[in-house]
Design a protein around this nucleic acid. Sequence first.
DNA 1: GCCCACATGTAATCAGTTACATGATTCT
DNA 2: AGAATCATGTAACTGATTACATGTGGGC
Lengths: 205, 205
Amino acid sequence: MRARDGDDSASVSGSALGYALLSLLTRGPATGYQLTQRMKSPIGHFWTAKHSQIYPELARLAAATWVELAEGAGPGPRAKKTYTLTPAGLAALGEWLVRPPVVAPRSETVLKAYAANSADPVAMADLYARIAARQRDLLDEWEQEAAMLRGTGHDRPDHPGFGNYAVLLMGIESARATGAWAQWLATCLRTGRAAAFGDPIPSGT
Amino acid sequence: MRARDGDDSASVSGSALGYALLSLLTRGPATGYQLTQRMKSPIGHFWTAKHSQIYPELARLAAATWVELAEGAGPGPRAKKTYTLTPAGLAALGEWLVRPPVVAPRSETVLKAYAANSADPVAMADLYARIAARQRDLLDEWEQEAAMLRGTGHDRPDHPGFGNYAVLLMGIESARATGAWAQWLATCLRTGRAAAFGDPIPSGT
DNA sequence: GCCCACATGTAATCAGTTACATGATTCT
DNA sequence: AGAATCATGTAACTGATTACATGTGGGC
């Protein structure tokens, strides 16, 4: 975020985190703490932030008049601050959304696969078998969640929860793809031979 | 990288970037410049680094004796340095590889979808239609590349290029998943109604 | 003469994590 | 009595990008 107080005009620009917080606030006003929780699911599988990063960013968003805050009595020594998205914040979000994404994806899981034959094949096969199992679990969980959301109309683009549904669908596709790939890789490494993609999970894991 | 000169023993630990460079060096000795190029494909779609990050990291790897360097005359004012992976470096890489990945994935593309109904639906549909088209192009390109690699035995885990092949396969799965999802999202936003996943690309884009 | 590829570095800044710090309320 | 949840912040550090800085050799 380059937005500072006094700089209320034209070229105000934000960081991806700032816009992520604005997106969370479209779901309704929240405290920094609540935003930290709200970020966990479902978007947390594709974007994360700790509270130590969120609190200063909220202060910057407030300085840019993209959010408003109401102070109240908090449980601890400091006041509890509830943030609300402003029309200016919503407009800034709308402008950012239609610009092409720029953050390059990073996957340590794929990076490790790139050096697959520099490690013990058994340990490596084990690692990717566990990753595949985890992705299958997530896939099951998310498919149930998505089915429930479909039942309540979240699959319509005018539904306020459509964004959540869209993220969940990408989670499903991502888990399916990663799971199948990790399983293929585990099979290759365990058998020491080329394997076909999409084979059923061999017994004896 | 916490590895410093003199600290050659037990608890030497590295950053993901350090291990990425070691992985690149398993393909053969290289200069920092060549590593910058080598990182572009195919692993560049899942892990990136600029030369300004690579050069200092190579110095740290050399201090940790994980790589060796040979100096020669360079084109510019400074000496050209060719780095080679040492047995200690290979061992360190092997230990890191079998540890579970920790870096959380980040996708600005999915983050934007999370706020899909806070922007102009037409512009948003356009954005995701372009993303889908791009993923289809990548899919075509990578499938041809993968077919070529299969023909030359890269799909066997003992082939030195197996890591490249594995990354390429994940690229394919990722492009397929992201492409189908982006197309679904574009269709939803354009029609303003719920769409089924995996539908054929509607005409008139 | 100009642009491109080769080649290596540093400085400033931004983004993100880890650790430190405080304190009320509710549940076990 | 101790742990978990709610709630907000800062400091130190690591990771990554952008910009600055230098210079050769080859092709057009």
